[in-house]
C-alpha cells in the first residue's frame, strides 16, 4: 500500500552553457523511503538536490513536496532538512550559537538539546566551529539540518572527507533518524554508504536516470560475481532496464 508521495520530480531538465546537467529526470519518492543517488562526478546529483531545495532553477519540469509545487510556495523548501555539499560556516562562531541561530530561522524547532545529545555534541557547544575536527563539523552540519524537525532529509555527500570511524558514527545516527515514516534522499560516492542507508538506489549518468530500483533488484541484473554496488558500479552506469 502506498504511504503517500513525499517528493515528486517530473521531467527535470537543466543545462549550463557548457554541459547538460539533467535530462528529463523524473522520480517519485514515497514517505518513509531512503533513496540514494549515485553516479560519477558531473552526473547531475548536486544539481538535482539543489533544484529540489529551490536553489537552482530548472529549465523544464517541476518539484513537489507532499503534493505541493515548490514554485507555488517559496517557504515549502524550508520544511526540508538540508545538508549541502559545499556549505561552510564561519569559523569564529560557536556550535551553540549556530544551533540557536538556525533554530530561529525556521517556524518549527526540534528539541535542541536532544539533537546535540544524539549527535554527541553537547560537550562541544561552546567550541568555535573552526576548532572542530572534520567529523565534528559534519555532525554540526547534520544537527543544523535537523533543527527544523524535518520529515524529509536531503544530504549531499554527507560523509565526504571523514575517516571510517566518523562515517560509521554518522551512518548510525542517520539510520536511527530514518526509522519510521521519515524520508531520506542522499547523494554519495560511497557505495557501502548507500547500501547501508538506502532501500532504493537511483543511478544518474550524464544527467539521465539510468537505473532506479532496490539494491537486491539492481544487483540481480549484474553479471556473476558483482554482488555489491561497488563491484557492479560500472555495470550500473550503463543502465539496468531503465527507460
Amino acid at each position: 500500500m502506498s504511504k503517500g508521495v513525499a517528493l515528486e520530480i517530473v521531467g527535470l531538465q537543466k543545462s549550463y552553457p557548457d554541459a547538460l546537467a539533467l535530462s528529463n529526470v523524473s522520480l517519485q519518492i514515497e514517505n518513509g523511503q531512503a533513496v540514494g543517488i549515485i553516479g560519477p562526478n558531473g552526473a547531475g546529483k548536486t544539481t538535482l538536490i539543489e533544484i529540489i531545495m529551490g536553489l537552482t532553477k530548472p529549465d523544464l519540469g517541476s518539484v513537489s513536496i507532499n503534493g505541493q509545487d515548490i514554485r507555488d510556495d517559496a517557504n515549502l523548501t524550508a520544511t526540508l532538512g538540508v545538508q549541502l555539499q559545499e556549505a561552510n560556516l564561519f569559523p569564529r562562531v560557536t556550535v551553540g550559537k549556530y544551533i540557536d541561530l538556525f533554530g530561529k530561522l525556521y517556524d518549527t524547532q526540534a528539541n535542541r538539546d536532544k539533537i546535540l545529545a544524539d549527535l554527541d555534541l553537547l560537550s562541544h557547544v561552546d567550541k568555535k566551529f573552526g576548532d572542530l575536527s572534520g567529523g565534528l563539523k559534519q555532525r554540526v552540519l547534520l544537527a543544523l539540518s535537523l533543527i527544523n524537525n524535518p520529515d524529509i532529509l536531503l544530504l549531499d555527500e554527507p560523509t565526504t572527507g571523514l575517516d571510517p570511524v566518523a562515517r560509521e558514527d554518522l551512518w548510525s545516527f542517520i539510520k536511527e533518524w530514518h526509522v519510521g515514516s521519515r524520508t531520506l534522499l542522499l547523494t554519495s560516492h560511497f557505495m557501502d554508504e548507500v547500501e547501508r542507508l538506502c532501500d532504493r538506489v537511483v543511478v544518474l549518468n550524464r544527467g539521465r536516470v539510468v537505473a532506479d530500483d532496490t539494491v537486491p533488484n539492481l544487483l540481480s541484473h549484474a553479471p556473476a560475481g558483482k554482488d555489491t554496488l561497488q563491484s557492479a558500479y560500472s555495470f550500473l552506469l550503463e543502465g539496468v532496464g531503465h527507460e
Binding site: A78, F90, F102, L105, L144
Partner: peptide, 14 residues
Amino acid sequence: ETGFYKRLLVTYID
C-alpha cells in the same frame, strides 16, 4: 563563496 548563502536560502531567510 562559502556556500553559507545557499544554506540560508533553504530556511525562512530569502
